[in-house]
């Protein structure tokens, strides 16, 4: 499955590990690469990632719901009052999910087909409307509440991705929270909407190995 191509910009090796992840950022020149039938083409340039102290890094492995995963990509998002990471997890069964890394909390999310979304408050967003914080929306038997709704901006990306994430890409993002730690995100850009559901997790519950070492801090007890 793994396909190794050369970056058309700098010639460095670019590895594509899954057909589900046709995009990646060149590790060397930060070119945004897209794999296609003809090979690979550069569609733009990603910005350098700003300095952060996230304990997650590309190459970290772990296990969620009994399936092993590896962190293969990241998108960094920002809004007027903060920024956060979405880490892309490639699971051993070929599926992928996201590990949200915001404000010291982690969210494990999987994409769900937008067509499955029935809640009125969310359908309105999918069709171009806005969401109001506090509004309830039921999905999959969980009574969510809109906790946040705002424009967010992609500021940087690295590794492999299921979509191109050019800097300056603006999406409307609605965060939802359930009563027992469930969470969901609905994102909509000019073209389409995507819906993610999942739950809050503790990093230690993911049995992580290969965490990022951070100067002056001992590795946590949960690191294997």
């Amino acid at each position: 499955m793994t396909l190794t191509l050369n970056c058309p910009n700098c010639g460095a090796q670019a590895v594509f590990r899954s057909p589900a992840l046709p995009c990646r950022v060149c590790d060397y020149c930060q070119s945004l690469l897209v794999r296609n039938d003809a090979g690979v083409s550069a569609v733009g340039k990603a910005a350098a990632l700003p300095f952060d102290v996230s304990p997650v890094r590309i190459g970290m492995r772990g296990r969620a719901d009994g399936i092993g995963f590896e962190v293969v990509g990241r998108v960094r998002w920002a809004w007027t009052d903060g920024s956060w990471n979405e880490w892309l997890l490639l699971f051993q069964d070929g599926s992928y999910g996201w590990l949200g890394d915001a404000m010291g909390l982690f969210m494990l999310l999987r994409e769900e087909p937008v067509a499955r979304v029935r809640a009125k408050a969310l359908r309105r967003v999918i069709e171009g409307g806005e969401a109001v914080p506090g509004v309830e929306a039921q999905h999959g038997g969980v009574k969510y509440q809109v906790s946040d709704a705002r424009d967010v901006l992609c500021i940087a990306a690295e590794g492999e991705l299921p979509f191109t994430a050019p800097p300056g890409w603006r999406v409307y993002s609605v965060d939802l929270k359930g009563p027992a730690g469930e969470c969901a995100t609905l994102q909509r850009d000019r073209d389409e909407a995507t819906f993610y559901t999942g739950r809050y997790v503790l990093l230690g519950d993911l049995e992580p190995s290969g965490l990022r070492a951070i100067e002056g801090w001992g590795m946590p007890a949960y690191a294997s």
Binding site: V53, R212, A213, I214, E215, G216, W217
Partner: peptide, 10 residues
């Protein structure tokens, strides 16, 4: 895995 990355400055 082969070369442990340098610790991230804190």
């Amino acid at each position: 895995d082969a070369i442990p990355p340098r610790p991230q400055p804190a």
